[in-house]
Amino acid sequence: MAFQPATIDPSNPLGPYIGAYIARSTAKNVKAGGGGAVTAILLYLLDKKKIDGVVAAKKTRGIKGEIVLAKTREEILMAAGNRWSIVPYTMRLKETLMSTDIRRVAFVGLPCQAQFLRQMKMFPLMEGDFADKIFVIISLFCMGTFAVESFTDYLARNYNVPLEEVENIDIEGDYLVIFYSGKKLRLPIESIIYHVQHGCILCPDYTGVFADISAGRASREGYTLILTRNRLADSIVNNAAYDGYLEISEATEEEIRYAREKALDKLNRSLKYIMRIL
């Protein structure tokens, strides 16, 4: 099994993986877009009793969110991914995981959170760690997150888009598209770069190289690119497909190149920036 060293190698910005798929959820009630396939995988894991719950960020208002432990199908559907702002892990989460009879949990988070979870699982530095409850770590692709207050204020002030009404955000080429109350707002990425968190500009990881499964936007509209990084992960994805939760096909060269370029962009950005602060 390939190991990812602590630093990402520019010749392999996606990190090691054993399977790459283009996937889409088969169920009608799972929304397409970034998280559709991930939600399908989670539902598969829950239905087959492989996990007792899912820790994920649930959208509360606009791009704001909170970390929840979802234990039912309904809760999982509600919690489906937020990848535009980071929702901190808190002591409350730890207490929830410690005190109930939850044994195995799937974690869905951003690459930095995947690194933390992998580290906890491999190297439990604390006796209070919940390492043995981590069943699978799923990372969403991430180009960087917004400083929430800064960004939502910017939208409200300049474009009259109220925080509550932001439904989804997506990237189309060099544009960021904001979906709100049935409308679309297209902003050039350069114009919003000031609202990205500094720490995210420093982050070298686009896909979440420390996760078991990494998933994010494929270039093909409405599909998700899934990278599986070990045998457990690969069997989860394939079985979810076999059992009809997911529709998968091998990712094409082009799809991989598409993700690779983005990953390399982020890595280069990071290397440039880190030299300034060392």
Binding site: I86, Y89, T90, C112, Q113, F116, M120, G199
Partner: peptide
């Protein structure tokens, strides 16, 4: 440069 992931709080 903190991103607010919360890893430190849990550690």
């Amino acid at each position: 440069i903190c991103v607010g992931c919360g890893a430190c709080v849990l550690s």
